[in-house]
């Protein structure tokens, strides 16, 4: 079994681990999400199919005799996910998710505690969604030629895709690829999903010339990177806040190239987003649009800043 999945399975109680380990390799390899609900099912999503845990502790596609998960079991997984350290995850809990070793994201639902109009934490946990982080070495090889301007610089690149279409996976491999080609890459990994840092060690291969600022807000992190690590390229995931625009402009003024991602479907979505200013200024010379048709992570098209098709 891949070490990648090991980090996820180790968060489950023994009985559930046994069920997960007995899954066919094809399902394990394609696994995208595991969802767990209080008084509900344990469900796996893989290759567009749902698998429900049954009373005999085996996963099947039908939900007729599904096993009901107790509140204690879900709470046990929640505590295990947080390494029994709720106090260390207050900021993450207020966002509704935490990132575990390996860069996997765990979404959390329950009763929110509001203080001064902001979500402070979540209690009475009702469901969890563990989203697997994937590392596919070589996935960017086919597209790197469209990003490289020459041997010393790249086009500023924006990866656009709806959720679960593989934008972080592609970004991760692009970082590794560019790092191996001699570029110094500074990664601002706000949600610890790109590098999957654990105790200062990156869990995913991002190349030999990559520096990672882990858990740092993107807008602050980009500026810190510029000042401290003199990168050729700054890479970050999921921009979209107004503060990010200023940080991107700072990076560009410092002569640093940028690779980043954003949620969306089309070029028009970008024009309606918070980064409209950057798009209008034609900052991103390469825009890679992903989709999950026919499969997750398909590059639908690559366009330039004028919305002209490159491939």
């Amino acid at each position: 079994m891949s070490k990648n999945l090991d980090h996820i399975f180790s968060k489950f109680p023994e009985s559930l681990q046994r069920a997960l380990f007995t899954l066919p390799d094809t399902v394990k390899d394609a696994m995208e999400e595991i969802r767990v609900k209080v008084n509900g099912a344990v469900t796996i999503y893989a290759s567009g199919k749902e698998y429900f845990l049954h009373q005999d502790n085996r996963f099947r596609e039908n939900c007729e005799k599904m096993r009901i998960t107790s509140k204690e079991e879900v709470l046990g997984i929640f505590n295990s996910v947080l390494n029994y350290s709720v106090y260390a995850y207050e900021d993450e809990l207020s966002n509704g998710y935490v990132t575990i070793q390996g860069g996997h994201r765990v979404g959390i639902c329950g009763k929110t505690v509001i203080q001064d109009g902001k979500v402070r934490t979540i209690k009475n946990i009702s469901s969890l969604n563990i989203r697997r982080s994937r590392e596919i070495i070589g996935i960017s090889e086919k597209y790197i030629q469209y990003i490289l301007r020459d041997n010393k610089s790249i086009y500023n690149t924006l990866i656009v895709s709806p959720p679960k279409c593989g934008k972080t996976t592609l970004l991760r491999d692009l970082i590794r690829n560019l790092s191996m080609r001699g570029f110094k890459v500074g990664v601002v990994d706000e949600r610890s999903e790109i590098a999957g840092m654990h105790e200062g060690i990156m869990q995913n291969d991002l190349g030999i010339r990559t520096d990672i600022l882990d858990g740092c807000p993107k807008d602050k992190g980009m500026i810190m990177m510029i000042r401290s690590m003199s990168p050729d390229i700054i890479a970050t995931d999921e921009i979209g806040k107004e503060e990010d625009v200023y940080a991107v402009e700072c990076a560009l003024n410092a002569g640093i190239n940028l690779i980043t991602t954003i949620h969306g479907y089309t070029f028009e979505d970008l024009m309606n987003s918070n980064i409209k200013k950057l798009i209008s200024k034609k900052i991103f010379n390469r825009i890679i649009i992903l989709s999950n048709i026919p499969t997750t992570g398909c590059v639908n098209k690559i366009i330039n800043s004028n919305n002209e098709l490159i491939i």
Partner: peptide, 10 residues
């Protein structure tokens, strides 16, 4: 115990 607990309550 923590290293071998896997989901056991602390």
């Amino acid at each position: 115990a923590l290293n071998h607990s896997f989901g056991k309550d602390f």
